[in-house]
Simulated scan of single mutants.
Amino acid sequence: MSNPVPSDFWTQPVVPLARALIGASLLVDDVGGMIVETEAYDIDDPASHAFGGPRGRNLVMFGPVAHAYVYKIYGIHWCLNFVGGAHPGSAVLIRAIAPTHGLETMIARRGLPDPRALCSGPGKLAQAMGITKALDGAPLDQPPFQLSLGGLADVVVGPRIGITKAIDQPWRFGLRGSPFVSRAFPKNG
Results as ranks from 00 to 15, higher is better:
67 H>L: 09
84 G>S: 12
98 A>W: 00
133 K>Y: 04
88 P>A: 12
125 L>I: 01
82 F>S: 02
137 G>D: 13
147 L>I: 15
120 S>H: 11
135 L>V: 11
140 L>M: 15
92 V>R: 06
140 L>S: 13
138 A>M: 13
133 K>E: 14
74 Y>P: 06
132 T>P: 08
109 R>H: 13
131 I>D: 05
67 H>S: 15
147 L>E: 06
89 G>C: 11
121 G>I: 02
103 L>A: 10
100 T>A: 15
70 V>F: 12
145 F>V: 07
127 Q>G: 01
124 K>W: 01
116 R>C: 12
125 L>W: 01
126 A>Q: 04
91 A>L: 04
69 Y>L: 07
124 K>E: 01
51 F>C: 08
134 A>R: 15
89 G>H: 05
78 W>G: 01
105 T>H: 05
143 P>S: 13
106 M>V: 09
80 L>D: 04
85 G>H: 09
96 A>S: 14
59 L>I: 06
110 R>H: 06
76 I>D: 00
109 R>G: 11
146 Q>C: 13
49 H>K: 08
47 A>Q: 08
83 V>Q: 07
61 M>K: 07
119 C>W: 03
99 P>V: 09
135 L>H: 12
142 Q>Y: 01
106 M>W: 04
72 K>A: 09
134 A>Y: 07
107 I>F: 00
130 G>E: 10
61 M>N: 03
133 K>P: 00
64 P>A: 15
107 I>E: 08
102 G>P: 06
51 F>E: 03
126 A>H: 02
75 G>D: 03
48 S>G: 06
61 M>T: 08
143 P>E: 11
119 C>I: 06
57 R>G: 05
120 S>M: 01
67 H>P: 03
104 E>C: 00
72 K>M: 15
132 T>L: 10
105 T>S: 08
130 G>C: 10
118 L>C: 03
97 I>H: 01
94 I>T: 08
111 G>S: 12
128 A>P: 09
112 L>M: 14
138 A>D: 08
47 A>C: 05
123 G>M: 03
133 K>G: 12
141 D>A: 14
130 G>F: 12
52 G>W: 05
106 M>Q: 12
146 Q>F: 02
104 E>F: 03
62 F>T: 09
120 S>I: 00
55 R>G: 02
111 G>V: 11
49 H>P: 01
139 P>M: 13
107 I>K: 14
50 A>R: 05
70 V>S: 03
96 A>H: 03
82 F>E: 02
85 G>W: 08
77 H>Q: 09
119 C>M: 00
80 L>N: 04
126 A>S: 15
96 A>K: 06
74 Y>N: 04
81 N>I: 10
83 V>N: 04
79 C>I: 10
88 P>Q: 11
57 R>H: 14
138 A>I: 05
69 Y>K: 04
139 P>E: 14
62 F>N: 08
120 S>P: 03
90 S>W: 11
117 A>Q: 14
80 L>S: 05
146 Q>K: 15
61 M>V: 09
95 R>F: 06
91 A>G: 12
78 W>H: 15
125 L>N: 01
78 W>Q: 09
83 V>L: 04
115 P>G: 02
74 Y>D: 00
108 A>W: 05
49 H>E: 05
125 L>E: 02
93 L>T: 09
60 V>Q: 14
72 K>F: 14
125 L>G: 04
121 G>Y: 02
71 Y>Q: 05
141 D>S: 13
55 R>T: 10
56 G>I: 10
55 R>W: 06
103 L>R: 12
89 G>S: 08
53 G>N: 08
105 T>E: 11
